[in-house]
Protein backbone atom coordinates (compact mmCIF):
# COMPACT_ATOMS: atom_id res chain seq x y z
CA UNK A 1 0.00 0.00 0.00
CA UNK A 2 1.44 3.31 -1.00
CA UNK A 3 1.26 6.44 1.03
CA UNK A 4 -1.91 8.27 0.03
CA UNK A 5 -1.35 11.63 -1.58
CA UNK A 6 -3.60 13.43 0.85
CA UNK A 7 -1.27 12.72 3.72
CA UNK A 8 1.25 15.06 2.15
CA UNK A 9 -1.37 17.77 2.09
CA UNK A 10 -1.99 17.40 5.77
CA UNK A 11 1.53 18.31 6.83
CA UNK A 12 0.60 21.89 7.54
CA UNK A 13 -2.19 21.28 10.05
CA UNK A 14 -0.13 18.63 11.78
CA UNK A 15 2.70 21.09 12.27
CA UNK A 16 0.27 23.68 13.48
CA UNK A 17 -0.86 21.27 16.14
CA UNK A 18 2.76 20.78 17.08
CA UNK A 19 2.93 24.47 17.92
CA UNK A 20 -0.11 24.15 20.13
CA UNK A 21 1.56 21.30 21.97
CA UNK A 22 4.64 23.40 22.53
CA UNK A 23 2.51 26.16 23.96
CA UNK A 24 0.93 23.78 26.42
CA UNK A 25 4.28 22.76 27.76
CA UNK A 26 4.81 19.58 25.81
CA UNK A 27 8.17 18.85 24.37
CA UNK A 28 7.15 17.33 21.09
CA UNK A 29 9.54 17.26 18.25
CA UNK A 30 8.10 16.75 14.83
CA UNK A 31 9.82 13.40 14.33
CA UNK A 32 8.08 11.88 17.36
CA UNK A 33 4.72 13.51 16.88
CA UNK A 34 3.28 10.44 15.17
CA UNK A 35 4.55 7.93 17.74
CA UNK A 36 4.13 7.35 21.46
CA UNK A 37 7.02 6.74 23.83
CA UNK A 38 6.78 3.68 26.07
CA UNK A 39 6.45 4.12 29.84
CA UNK A 40 9.95 2.60 30.19
CA UNK A 41 11.50 5.42 28.24
CA UNK A 42 10.59 7.82 31.05
CA UNK A 43 12.68 5.88 33.58
CA UNK A 44 15.31 8.58 33.55
CA UNK A 45 12.89 10.98 35.27
CA UNK A 46 13.65 10.27 38.92
CA UNK A 47 10.96 12.38 40.54
CA UNK A 48 7.86 10.12 40.60
CA UNK A 49 5.43 13.03 40.34
CA UNK A 50 7.28 14.49 37.42
CA UNK A 51 7.48 11.09 35.80
CA UNK A 52 3.76 10.55 36.25
CA UNK A 53 3.06 13.94 34.73
CA UNK A 54 5.40 13.08 31.87
CA UNK A 55 3.34 9.98 31.09
CA UNK A 56 0.29 12.17 30.82
CA UNK A 57 2.10 14.70 28.70
CA UNK A 58 3.01 11.93 26.28
CA UNK A 59 -0.57 10.67 26.35
CA UNK A 60 -1.63 14.24 25.59
CA UNK A 61 -0.43 13.72 22.02
CA UNK A 62 -3.39 11.38 21.68
CA UNK A 63 -5.91 13.35 23.70
CA UNK A 64 -5.17 16.52 21.79
CA UNK A 65 -5.18 14.92 18.39
CA UNK A 66 -8.07 15.97 16.16
CA UNK A 67 -9.35 12.39 16.38
CA UNK A 68 -10.21 12.92 20.03
CA UNK A 69 -10.82 16.66 20.22
CA UNK A 70 -13.33 16.77 17.34
CA UNK A 71 -15.90 14.85 19.37
CA UNK A 72 -14.93 16.36 22.71
CA UNK A 73 -16.00 19.91 21.77
CA UNK A 74 -16.46 22.67 24.27
CA UNK A 75 -19.93 23.44 22.93
CA UNK A 76 -22.68 21.49 21.26
CA UNK A 77 -21.28 21.25 17.76
CA UNK A 78 -18.46 18.84 16.94
CA UNK A 79 -15.59 19.77 14.69
CA UNK A 80 -14.40 17.75 11.77
CA UNK A 81 -11.28 16.70 9.91
CA UNK A 82 -7.63 17.28 10.61
CA UNK A 83 -8.27 21.02 10.32
CA UNK A 84 -10.90 20.75 13.02
CA UNK A 85 -13.33 22.98 11.21
CA UNK A 86 -16.91 23.08 12.43
CA UNK A 87 -18.82 19.97 11.40
CA UNK A 88 -20.61 20.33 8.08
CA UNK A 89 -23.49 19.93 7.74
CA UNK A 90 -24.15 21.62 11.05
CA UNK A 91 -24.96 18.95 13.62
CA UNK A 92 -25.58 19.42 17.28
CA UNK A 93 -25.32 17.35 20.41
CA UNK A 94 -29.02 16.86 21.06
CA UNK A 95 -30.46 15.44 24.27
CA UNK A 96 -28.47 12.18 24.16
CA UNK A 97 -25.24 13.28 22.47
CA UNK A 98 -26.33 11.57 19.27
CA UNK A 99 -27.73 14.52 17.41
CA UNK A 100 -30.94 16.45 17.00
CA UNK A 101 -34.08 14.68 15.90
CA UNK A 102 -33.71 16.02 12.36
CA UNK A 103 -30.12 14.85 12.02
CA UNK A 104 -28.87 11.96 14.08
CA UNK A 105 -25.19 11.00 14.10
CA UNK A 106 -25.78 7.42 13.02
CA UNK A 107 -27.65 8.26 9.84
CA UNK A 108 -24.29 9.08 8.28
CA UNK A 109 -21.86 7.55 10.75
CA UNK A 110 -22.87 3.94 10.54
CA UNK A 111 -21.19 0.80 11.83
CA UNK A 112 -17.81 1.26 10.21
CA UNK A 113 -15.70 3.71 8.25
CA UNK A 114 -16.84 4.05 4.64
CA UNK A 115 -14.00 5.40 2.58
CA UNK A 116 -16.14 6.00 -0.51
CA UNK A 117 -17.70 8.96 1.26
CA UNK A 118 -14.63 9.52 3.45
CA UNK A 119 -16.97 9.09 6.35
CA UNK A 120 -15.95 7.59 9.66
CA UNK A 121 -18.15 5.13 11.46
CA UNK A 122 -18.56 3.05 14.60
CA UNK A 123 -21.68 1.47 16.10
CA UNK A 124 -21.52 3.80 19.11
CA UNK A 125 -20.69 7.04 17.26
CA UNK A 126 -21.68 9.98 19.47
CA UNK A 127 -20.40 13.13 21.09
CA UNK A 128 -18.65 13.06 24.42
CA UNK A 129 -20.87 14.68 27.05
CA UNK A 130 -20.52 18.42 27.43
CA UNK A 131 -18.72 18.10 30.76
CA UNK A 132 -16.09 16.05 28.97
CA UNK A 133 -15.39 18.82 26.46
CA UNK A 134 -11.67 19.29 25.89
CA UNK A 135 -11.45 21.82 23.10
CA UNK A 136 -9.81 25.07 24.12
CA UNK A 137 -8.33 23.59 27.25
CA UNK A 138 -4.69 23.15 28.22
CA UNK A 139 -3.40 19.66 28.70
CA UNK A 140 -3.11 20.37 32.39
CA UNK A 141 -6.79 21.31 32.52
CA UNK A 142 -7.71 18.19 30.55
CA UNK A 143 -5.73 16.14 33.03
CA UNK A 144 -7.60 17.55 36.01
CA UNK A 145 -10.85 17.03 34.15
CA UNK A 146 -10.14 13.45 33.20
CA UNK A 147 -9.49 12.57 36.83
CA UNK A 148 -12.70 14.17 38.03
CA UNK A 149 -15.51 11.58 38.10
CA UNK A 150 -17.99 14.44 37.69
CA UNK A 151 -16.38 15.28 34.38
CA UNK A 152 -15.15 11.92 33.11
CA UNK A 153 -18.33 9.90 33.02
CA UNK A 154 -18.00 8.68 36.59
CA UNK A 155 -14.85 6.71 35.91
CA UNK A 156 -12.19 5.73 38.40
CA UNK A 157 -8.60 6.18 37.28
CA UNK A 158 -8.45 2.41 36.72
CA UNK A 159 -11.49 2.63 34.45
CA UNK A 160 -9.55 5.05 32.29
CA UNK A 161 -6.94 2.39 31.51
CA UNK A 162 -9.60 0.26 29.93
CA UNK A 163 -11.47 3.18 28.37
CA UNK A 164 -8.47 4.55 26.56
CA UNK A 165 -6.65 1.29 26.13
CA UNK A 166 -9.46 -0.97 24.99
CA UNK A 167 -12.71 0.87 24.18
CA UNK A 168 -13.44 0.34 20.52
CA UNK A 169 -14.86 3.82 19.89
CA UNK A 170 -11.67 5.29 21.36
CA UNK A 171 -9.78 2.75 19.30
CA UNK A 172 -11.30 4.21 16.14
CA UNK A 173 -8.86 7.11 16.60
CA UNK A 174 -6.07 4.86 15.38
CA UNK A 175 -8.09 3.57 12.41
CA UNK A 176 -9.91 6.66 11.25
CA UNK A 177 -10.15 5.87 7.54
CA UNK A 178 -9.17 7.76 4.43
CA UNK A 179 -8.61 11.48 4.78
CA UNK A 180 -7.87 11.60 8.50
CA UNK A 181 -4.54 11.33 10.33
CA UNK A 182 -4.63 8.59 12.97
CA UNK A 183 -3.90 9.40 16.59
CA UNK A 184 -0.19 8.95 17.41
CA UNK A 185 1.16 5.55 18.28
CA UNK A 186 -1.22 2.67 18.91
CA UNK A 187 -4.16 2.22 21.25
CA UNK A 188 -2.12 -0.39 23.15
CA UNK A 189 0.71 2.07 23.65
CA UNK A 190 -1.74 4.72 24.78
CA UNK A 191 -3.26 2.23 27.22
CA UNK A 192 0.19 1.44 28.57
CA UNK A 193 0.80 5.14 29.19
CA UNK A 194 -2.54 5.48 30.99
CA UNK A 195 -1.74 2.46 33.11
CA UNK A 196 1.69 3.82 34.02
CA UNK A 197 0.19 7.21 34.78
CA UNK A 198 -2.55 5.78 37.01
CA UNK A 199 -0.17 3.49 38.84
CA UNK A 200 2.28 6.33 39.42
CA UNK A 201 -0.33 8.46 41.14
CA UNK A 202 -1.96 10.18 38.15
CA UNK A 203 -0.07 13.45 38.46
CA UNK A 204 -0.93 16.24 36.10
CA UNK A 205 1.51 18.28 34.06
Amino acid sequence: MTRPKWLLLLVVPVLANGLVFAATGMAVSSDTSRTLASPESFAAITDPVQRSAAYFTELGKVLESPRCLNCHPAGNRPSQGDMMRPHEPPVFRGPDGMGLVSMRCNTCHQGANFDQGRIPGHPAWHLAPLEMGWQGKTLSEICQQIKDPARNGGRTPEDLIDHIGADTLVGWAWHPGVGRTPAPGTQKEAGALVAAWVKSGAACP
Binding site: R3, K5, G179
Partner: peptide, 9 residues
Amino acid sequence: LALRDGDYL
Protein backbone atom coordinates in the same frame (compact mmCIF):
# COMPACT_ATOMS: atom_id res chain seq x y z
CA LEU B 1 -11.45 5.93 -5.43
CA ALA B 2 -7.96 4.59 -5.91
CA LEU B 3 -6.93 7.64 -7.89
CA ARG B 4 -8.71 10.04 -5.55
CA ASP B 5 -7.06 8.66 -2.45
CA GLY B 6 -3.83 7.19 -3.76
CA ASP B 7 -0.62 8.33 -5.36
CA TYR B 8 -0.68 7.04 -8.89
CA LEU B 9 0.60 10.09 -10.74
